[in-house]
Each structure stands twice: as C-alpha cells, then as structure tokens.
Design a protein around this nucleic acid. Sequence first.
DNA 1: CTATGACCAAATAGTCTTAATCAGTCATTT
DNA 2: AAATGACTGATTAAGACTATTTGGTCATAG
Lengths: 243, 243
Amino acid sequence: MADQSQGASTRQRDESRRQERAGRILDAAAGLILRWGYSKTTIDDIARQAGVAKGTIYLHWKTREDLFGALLRREKLGLADDIRQRIADDPAGSALRGALKHSALALMKRPLLKAVLLRDLDVIGKLAHGERNSAAQLERLTGFKTYLEFLRDCNLVRTDLSLRSQEYVVSAIFMGFFLAAPLIPEEFTLSDDEIADLMAETVHRTLEPDRAVPADELQNASHAFLRYLNHATKTAESSFSEM
Amino acid sequence: MADQSQGASTRQRDESRRQERAGRILDAAAGLILRWGYSKTTIDDIARQAGVAKGTIYLHWKTREDLFGALLRREKLGLADDIRQRIADDPAGSALRGALKHSALALMKRPLLKAVLLRDLDVIGKLAHGERNSAAQLERLTGFKTYLEFLRDCNLVRTDLSLRSQEYVVSAIFMGFFLAAPLIPEEFTLSDDEIADLMAETVHRTLEPDRAVPADELQNASHAFLRYLNHATKTAESSFSEM
DNA sequence: CTATGACCAAATAGTCTTAATCAGTCATTT
DNA sequence: AAATGACTGATTAAGACTATTTGGTCATAG
C-alpha cells in the first residue's frame, strides 16, 4: 500500500498549517512581551492572544523558555534576512560602513532584539541575562573577526591598526550610536536614518581607507559579510542564547 | 574690643580642620558606596569608617541626601580639575579629540562618576535616578553646544555637518567607547589608555578637518574648552543633580 | 490523531505581624 | 562651644501563613 491513510500532500499541508500556527503563537508572544515585558507575559496570555488552547503551545515547545528561545531565534533569523535584503538592494554600500548601516537600520526595526542589545531589562527581564559572556556571543564576535580579517586582507579597512583595536572600535561605534539615542535628552536625538548614516560615516572615516574601491572588491566584501551573516545565522539556529 | 575670645588664626585653623574632617567623611562615604552600593551604605557605617560620631556628620550636612550630593559635587569638581590638569600638561592635544581623550581618561579614574555615567544601578541605586533629563544635564549639553559652535567658527571641526548631528556623534562616540568595555567579553577589551586613544582618533577622523592646526588656534580651542569646563563646574557647584 | 481546557503541584503574590534598621535629634560629656 | 552616642519614630526587612497565579500534564472531546 502507498500511504497509510493520508496522502503526502495532506501531510505536507498539515505541516505547513502547523508552522503557520507556530508563527501565530510567536507573533502573539512577541506582541505581549513588548507590551507587558517578559516576566509578565504568561503562557495563558499567549494562548488566548494566539487563539489556541494552552496545551497546543506545548505541542510546539516543551517549556516556556523554549518558546521564548524560538522567538528570539526567529527574530535573529529575520534580522539576518532583513540585512541580506538591504545589502542586496544596495550593493554599492556593502563595505564595512554599509554592513554596519544596514545592520543598524534592520536592528532598529526589531524592537525585541533592540531591547536585548540595549539590555532593556524591563522588556526582556532575565531572559537574556546571566549569559553576558556566553559562548554564542563569543562565537559571534570571533565570526565578525574573520570578516574583519578578510576586509583587512583586501585593503578595505585600514591595516595600520591592530585587529583587536579595530574590533573594539567597531563595537564601540555601533553600540554608542545605538545607546546614545535613549540616554540623550529628547530634543537632541535624531531619526533612525540620520543615526544610521552618521554611524556609517563614522565607521567609514575611522576605519576605511579613502581610496575609491572598485566594484569587484565591493562584491568580495559583500560576499564576506554574507558569509559572516550565514555563520551567525547557523549558530543562532542551533542555540538558544542571546545575541 | 578685637576678638571675643579666640584669635582670627584660631578660627581659621578650626575651619580648616572642619573642612579636612568633611573630606574624611566624604572619603569614607565614597569608599563604602563603591564597596556596598548606595542603598546599603548607612550613615552609621560612614561615621564608623570616618572615625567620627554620627551626630558629627549632621554638623556638616542636614540630611543623608545632602551628604551624597556633596560627594557627587566634590567628585565632579575633582574631575574638572583633573581634566584641566591633563589639558594643561598636553597643550598640543587640546582640540576636540584631546578634550574627549582627557575627559575620558580622567573619568575612568573616578569610579563613582563612571558608575553614574554608566548608570550602574547596583552602585548608585536611585541616587542619580529619575533625573535622566534633568535641567542640569540639559544645561551641560547646551554648554557643550556653545563649545562646539566655537570650534566650528574656528574651523577646528567640520562645518559640513549640522551642529545637531555633530553633537550626537560626539555623544555617541564618547558613550560608545565607554559602554563597550563592560559589555564586551573580557578577552576583547583594551586598557583605559588604548580606549581613550582610539576614542580620540575616532573623533579626530570623524569630526576634525585634517589640515594642520596652528598653535594659536589650539590655544583658542583650549580656552574654549576650559570655558565650557568652568561653566559646567559652576552649575555643578550650585546643583545636586547627576552628571 | 489532534486539540482542548480542567486539573495539579509549584511557585509567586499578597497579608498580616513582629523584629530590626536607620535617619535624624538632643541631652550629656568633653 | 564642639562632639558624642543613646534614644526615637518611622521605615523597612523577616517571617509565617494564605490566596492567587502559572507552567506544565493528561484524560477527554472532536
């Protein structure tokens, strides 16, 4: 006999409906967590918001933490996709400055990840806590390091500066432009796009040589960054920890 | 008659002893607050540590908050002095980059103010809380603005960038290099001096024109920054609020 | 076979009472 | 007059107990 009782397409459809429902649940969780914070968001709330019974949620994830882990993972993968999209739409700006600018802009549109990055404890609670120097974060940074090393080999960033320093500079600029916004009095803040552009310019002037870069080298840089993204994506897929 | 019962020199000596004792008390408070945090530091602790009776503390300050206000004020004035000293010792590096570098280095040596800046709540508790957008902070920023405006007038910083953006860039760089250190995994951090130098270089390459600057213009810049410092100092003297 | 929601144990929040601590005062000592 | 530390009232912590909530399960319905 071919199939027991259901056709392959049925099984497939069931699986896709399942995925869609999982997505709805995660959507509900994301919305609630942003509105009420991590610790105040209960499984019952999520079930009600998603229009499923509580038990259904446990058909998808074993524990509450698994659910939030999946949510963060989805956010990270989505972020990586957004960045890839932006880079694809702007191949000219794919050197280091472009990578940072597009990452920043994409990140600003993801309030959950923004909260994680800014360690906005009201929102994420202890979800991403106690993992500050987690293996994943380290791996992410070392992945970034190989990207930077590649850029150095291509002379797409200055080489008269140690790799270590360069890493610190990139991190500091990225975090600074991000963190400054909420800490500065309102009347001094700028729009997301202005911030991203200024960040890009800062990185450019500080770390990139001012020679004109041929298009094919930009392609290389672009590919290297995509490799980094893919690497980061892979580690995100297999781990629960924070950014 | 001349004096009632004590000579002027005696009165003077008493006053200086008084000042010295006030200093000892503030020293004790600073040490305890750094070790145990603001909320866990009691007046009794401070008195014991300073070797005075509790009542004596109230001969100097009306309330606990007054004491901590005085402590913060003293720290701020000391910081300003340190910065002035550094600038005086390095007149060549007194353009914007030097101002930031010296401010950063001076600040790093003042753990209490560093905690306030980094909003290290474990240390400062609610001491500097609820004043985020305080009038003092605003005034400080506007004071900095006039400094920046002066630098623009002298062509000591780029003018092809709005003042507003420039302010944001300076803030972001300053905060970024500061905040990155504790958030980055240990094996990626740098020494204070390295950080300050990188910060200075970043500010230089991002905001300063690369023309060679004559010594007399540097003098001007130096004076302008000292004016800003004096302004900030004055507002610190008259107010209790945070940095 | 899937989805549900009543159900349970465990954790959390709330309530009340008691004990301890602390900021600030002031009578006493030096 | 200056300095002290025992004292006080008010705030906070601790504890004991109860009520509520919540993560997770599972027998049942569809």
